[in-house]
Every structure is written in structure tokens, then in C-alpha cells.
């Protein structure tokens, strides 16, 4: 037994048939309780297959996994889980309140808790005003919010969200993001599958990138986006002598609107960075900003799935000061 929220060992799926399709190559994955884990990847990368495997919708071809120590093959494992699937469908004749009640009943939630929980969640996803309207009259955004409420009815310890902001307007998107942050604050493990990388970057503590059924990157957002031992500098104009002295350690990236120079210092460690800064100041260069160089998650994603070079690898030509 393990107290990990998700523990997968060699979990893989190959769909059979005349031409077998490898949807997910054997994968090891550990997600700790309370983590907000983001799963990224292009279409067909195996993201949904992984979620379906973990929730028992698909049977693994290889390996095994547990949710909070319970084997995924057992229905009991899903008692602690909530799921918002992509493109979910609810019976159109049910009202929002009835939908929450019926699906929570299937999750084993008692009648008293169902009523109170439904009221609270309808309020939380801003559907109180439409609680008694048939679901068939809902817009896509409303359906998405109802799906989110449905996934939380059983007070899950882990919630799988597949494209939770799909079809939701920017205001709704922000609300869903704050809801996810609220779940994180409540200690709920969130497994987020989304194409909106900016959202993943904002809310996830750890991220994995899948491509062609294989995990190609995994780590904290900070680990993945930080570019080794590089720092971005914004300074006043750099004299040629300074550039010559610093050599390969400093590359010019461009200029700001105010005429300041943007450059990247690639040095072995913090001491070397400070030595470079000392040299700049000694040459009369004013330092406006110093920060660790990072890629956006989007840049990282594009680079990872397409194999294109890192952003900034091909720097603009030096700007004479």
C-alpha cells in the first residue's frame, strides 16, 4: 500500500485489432496528495488514455496503478475520485439540481449531504439561478460548470479535470482557475489535462509532457522552464570593451523601448554572475534588472513536442552601445 495520490508502475495501453495502436507506452508516475499536476501533450499524445486508465474506463495492457493505495481495477478506487471528462453529456431532461443529485447518488453520497453539497456547488459555479432548468437548455459554458460541480459532489481526494475551461468565457475561466486553486488549498489533488498552457503554468505545481504515448518531460514548472545557468539582464548601453571582456558569457538579445539593452548572461554559477555584474558596474554600466532566464511553458511545450530549438538560442546580433 502507498499513500500516494497516484502511483503508476509501467502503466501502458495498446489498443488491439489488426493494426495495434500504442496509445500509452509503459509509464511510471507518482503524484503526491495535494499536488496540482498538469498533463500536457499534443492531440493523440495519450493524455486522455492515461486519465481513462487511472479511472478504470480503459483496461491497462501493461503495468498497474493505484489511487491512494487502491488498485485502479477496483471500483472502490474511484470512491475518492471526481472526474470532469472532456465533452461530457448529461441527460438533457434533468435539471442541474437533479443531475447533481443522481450522479452523487451513484458515487455513494448520502441524501442529506447530496442536497447541501449540491446547493453549495451550484452557488460556487454560479448556477444557482439555473438550478431547476433542464440541462438541455444550458450553454456550453454552463454545462462545463455543471460538469465541474458534478465532479466535486463526492468531496473527492483527487479530481481529474479534462479541459475544464473548454467553451468557458474568460470570466468563467478565471473562476474555474480560482476554484482549482481553492481545491489545492483544501488539500485536494488535482490532475489537470489542458491545452491552455498559461492556465497550467499558473495553477500546477508539477507538469508532465506526453508525446506519441511517451513521457518526454516531467518536473516542477520552475524546473522545466528555467534555462540552466542563464540570467536575463537589462542594462544601459554596453561598451565594446566590456563585451570583449565578458566574451561568450554575455549575449545581446535586443533593446527595450527605453533604449536599454536586454542580454543573457550564461555563467557557471552565482559567483561568476556577480563577477560579471561587478565588471559591468566597473565599466559604468547601470543595471536595471537581473532575473533567472526562463522559457514560458508554451515555449517549452512547443520545443518539446516539435523538437524546435529553445527560444533565445539564436540570439539577435549584438547592439553596439
Amino acid at each position: 500500500m502507498t499513500d500516494l495520490a497516484i502511483h503508476a508502475a509501467g502503466l501502458g495501453k495498446t489498443y488491439g485489432g489488426r493494426r495495434p495502436v500504442v496509445a500509452l507506452r509503459p509509464l511510471d508516475l507518482e503524484v503526491a496528495p495535494g499536488e496540482t499536476f498538469g498533463l500536457l501533450g499534443p492531440n493523440g499524445a495519450g493524455k486522455t488514455t492515461l486519465v481513462k486508465l487511472l479511472l478504470g474506463l480503459v483496461r491497462p495492457s501493461a503495468g498497474d496503478a493505484t489511487l491512494f493505495g487502491r488498485p485502479i481495477a477496483a471500483p472502490e478506487a474511484r470512491r475518492v475520485a471526481g472526474y470532469l471528462p472532456e465533452g461530457h453529456r448529461f441527460p438533457p431532461f434533468l435539471t442541474a439540481r437533479q443531475t447533481l443529485d443522481l450522479f452523487a447518488r451513484m458515487s455513494g453520497v448520502g441524501p442529506t449531504h447530496r442536497r447541501a453539497r449540491a446547493e453549495a456547488l451550484l452557488e460556487r459555479v454560479r448556477l444557482s439561478g439555473a438550478a431547476d432548468r433542464p440541462v438541455g437548455t444550458f450553454s456550453k459554458g454552463m454545462l462545463q460548470r455543471l460538469g465541474l460541480a458534478q465532479s466535486l459532489m463526492n468531496r473527492p481526494q483527487i479530481v481529474f479535470l479534462d479541459e475544464p475551461t473548454d467553451g468557458v468565457d474568460p470570466v468563467g475561466r478565471r473562476e474555474i482557475r480560482s476554484l482549482i486553486e481553492g481545491l489545492r488549498d483544501d488539500g485536494v489533488t488535482v490532475f489537470l489535462n489542458s491545452h491552455l498552457l498559461s492556465e497550467v503554468e499558473r495553477v500546477c505545481t508539477r507538469v508532465a509532457i506526453l508525446k506519441d504515448g511517451e513521457r518526454i518531460r516531467m518536473g516542477t514548472v520552475d524546473e522545466l522552464t528555467r534555462q540552466g545557468r542563464a540570467w536575463r539582464l537589462v542594462t544601459s548601453a554596453l561598451p565594446p570593451a566590456t563585451l570583449d571582456a565578458l566574451g561568450d558569457a554575455l549575449s545581446i538579445d535586443g533593446t527595450t523601448h527605453e533604449g536599454l539593452v536586454r542580454s543573457t548572461a550564461t555563467v557557471p554559477d552565482r559567483a561568476a554572475l556577480n563577477a560579471a555584474l561587478d565588471r559591468l558596474r566597473a565599466d559604468g554600466v547601470e543595471v536595471e534588472a537581473v532575473e533567472p532566464a526562463r522559457q514560458s511553458l508554451e515555449d517549452l511545450f512547443v520545443e518539446a513536442v516539435s523538437g524546435s530549438p529553445r527560444l533565445g538560442a539564436a540570439a539577435e546580433p549584438p547592439v553596439d552601445g
Binding site: 471500483p75 474511484r78 465533452g87
Partner: peptide, 18 residues
């Protein structure tokens, strides 16, 4: 067994037989 509907129902803590 339809996609979207099965996803919601079959991920409840119920056996397929149930």
C-alpha cells in the same frame, strides 16, 4: 456506452455489472 455519457457513469465507484 456513448462517449461523454459512459465517461461520467463508468467512473463512479460502481462495478460494470452493477
Amino acid at each position: 456506452t456513448e462517449r461523454g455519457y459512459a465517461d461520467v457513469i463508468l467512473t463512479k465507484p460502481l462495478s460494470r455489472s452493477a
